[in-house]
Design a binder for these strands. Sequence first.
DNA 1: ATAAAGTCTATAATAGTTATAGACTTTAAA
DNA 2: TTTAAAGTCTATAACTATTATAGACTTTAT
Lengths: 153, 153
Amino acid sequence: MRLSKRGEYGLRAMMRLAEDIQPGQPYPLMQIKEIAGRDKIPAKFLEQILLALKNAGLLHSKMGIGGGYYLGKPPEEITLGHIIRVLDGPLAPIRCVSQTAYEPCGCPDALTCGLRLVMSDVREAVAAILDHTSLADITNRVDGLRLSLGLGE
Amino acid sequence: MRLSKRGEYGLRAMMRLAEDIQPGQPYPLMQIKEIAGRDKIPAKFLEQILLALKNAGLLHSKMGIGGGYYLGKPPEEITLGHIIRVLDGPLAPIRCVSQTAYEPCGCPDALTCGLRLVMSDVREAVAAILDHTSLADITNRVDGLRLSLGLGE
DNA sequence: ATAAAGTCTATAATAGTTATAGACTTTAAA
DNA sequence: TTTAAAGTCTATAACTATTATAGACTTTAT
């Protein structure tokens, strides 16, 4: 029931790219190295992760001097569920209950398999959160918390 | 976000031991081999799993001829959450959000870390299901489904 | 005494995760 | 037009965890 480092790093990087978006401005551009440095992520590992997110359309990039990565869509439209699926695969705890990567599990009667019933509930609950939380939701929540705690910046 | 085979096998075995409990009768006794055969689980692997569940007090056993395993507590009191924690460790997707096995994650400010906020919600949601679903709940649910589908026995 | 069961620990086999390496491409600017 | 700073891509090394098997031991009913 665990999020991999790959997933964690990817989420942190995406949150980083979403965090100081200014209204009316183009999305901020950041280099791999910068994100890696700020979030203490091995740069070469992050490179692969960002590439995967780019291939999934969640990031765009600019090559060459002054290049870097930036969000591929408005932060309101990027859900954590999408990010995690790209990096770690299906949310379902067990394949036979996955909406996006179903596979039969071989239990004698799938319809009345107790394990499926519960794991399906779990999948549902997790997806309900992760597919309805966007990068924008996170920044809002964090900003709100910072304010209410009276922290600067 | 996945349940291991170990966890899956353990859950299936526990459900098997709970399924034909008769009121007023002692809990049914089953041998490793029998469970392994019925649920298509490698017997030697299951052996380790049942031993772990036994050491956690969720199962009791009887050695020697005519021996086997049986539930260590009423099925109403055995939650899936407990079983999974014994076999797979904490439910939390990320350690810094675990109630049972907390570990700091090294983010600069834990209080306002966006990842923690969401993953904490996820942990909560998963635990809400798994810690409030007992073996008895499962058998009831499965029996109900079988009846409503008109399947025999 | 024997055979059928669980106990216990080690380790093999496999797979998955995490990380590093290096050669390549694109692009801005000197 | 060269150079350096960026991303791209693929391979593979290092590590860790999972899954499974092996085998010697203990207990107990018959």
